[in-house]
Design a protein around this nucleic acid. Sequence first.
DNA 1: ACACCAAGGTTGTATATACAAGAATATACC
DNA 2: GGTATATTCTTGTATATACAACCTTGGTGT
Lengths: 237, 237
Amino acid sequence: MIPKFEAIKRAISSEIEQGQWREHQQVPSENALAERFGCSRMTARRALTELVEQGVLVRSQGLGTFVAPFKSQGSMMAIRNIAEEIRERGHQHSAQLLLLKQVAAEAEVAIALSVPNGSAIFRSCLLHQENGQPVQLEDRYVNPALVPDYLAQGFDRQTPHEYLSQVAPLTQAHHLVEAVAPSEVQQRLLALATPEPCLQICRRTWSSQGVVSYARLLHPGSRFRLGGHLMVESTSR
Amino acid sequence: MIPKFEAIKRAISSEIEQGQWREHQQVPSENALAERFGCSRMTARRALTELVEQGVLVRSQGLGTFVAPFKSQGSMMAIRNIAEEIRERGHQHSAQLLLLKQVAAEAEVAIALSVPNGSAIFRSCLLHQENGQPVQLEDRYVNPALVPDYLAQGFDRQTPHEYLSQVAPLTQAHHLVEAVAPSEVQQRLLALATPEPCLQICRRTWSSQGVVSYARLLHPGSRFRLGGHLMVESTSR
DNA sequence: ACACCAAGGTTGTATATACAAGAATATACC
DNA sequence: GGTATATTCTTGTATATACAACCTTGGTGT
């Protein structure tokens, strides 16, 4: 038996996903929702509150509650995987494996992975989608010395990140975030009508053994952003 | 006047930070807290709920509420100011003050600063240059209640960030990073020949008193990258 | 025409209450 | 001793109510 507030959350999410309630549109007031779902205002309110925390809705005292502009959001502070983040938003994640093979390391990648120039490394290329819409193009290079069975994976039930986390637990990571224009191929893969700015994250991850992987994650600027919250603790602790 | 649940949150946080309540230790039950703080159980419960969402506490039905183990992941991005970063690279930082005045808060800004819509706030606009080349367009809104003397500053020897850090020491910050196309005005100010992708950072900063400032920092994608390093400590015990 | 105020609708805070569900402990029973 | 069972304490869900704070709108008075 799912709780009422959960049922209300899903009903509201559903309305939004199916386009009944559009971006910036006002959703029914707490009292109206209470009446519609046959519950008290407090229960309807709880559903709204949790959706606001998830970034699905925005509220303003005295004004009303509105559908938030949709944009997937990744976390800056923690290394999370995109599938998790998408599922946490209550959306559907899917991915297509575009490429998975052994290649010779080019200069940039060789340096990033700390392997000799031209040595054999593994490369995978995946397109991640949120509710069927492309949000991330993942171009990843993997150190075969640390992850010898990488090519044997299917990546249909597990993302590369999830697999790597199991095989070689991450101890360090380095990020580089920049705004770039997509190449024509990238633009086509991300299903962008026009060449809009993209957010690229280049991520190097280490396990205790050394550099595990180097990934270039490309996101359409209109559909993805990075968020981070920082709390400064009092210096006493 | 701060709300009761907020006061309770701070009291609990304080207990934890000062080591009175240790990791994994059980905190008083909701009923006990209600009695201690002279409020209803629902109010005490709300305080706990929000602290659980912040990761300070963990709850388990039937068992109790406990102090969460401290986070092992360090922050990935320090709040730095652009002038420092530039000087650290051995380059020369300069800035032009483009605008500094009182304005009426538009909807988006009003929400970000948690002030009533249309109320008077301060706005500043600066262009930061590295060796004479524009690297950041800083569009900042400041809460006058917390920083009454903001307009009296010259910002020729001190950046707004530096000034704010002194006047209202920061306790929290929230970041949103996205890739956007610059407007014509922005493109001209940043001295971009073509409309190249830009990296925009929207930053909200809090002091203990509340939201201090909301800033939109726009950087040319070709001249600015955001880096971050993360180290995972061994999570023993 | 303009400034001001009142009314109504919205979200925000706070309380009192009730029962459900989970977990540990004490108790009764065999 | 071992096994149920009952009790009690905890968090989880749900409701009804009251008032505060905020925003918009419309009317009122000047």
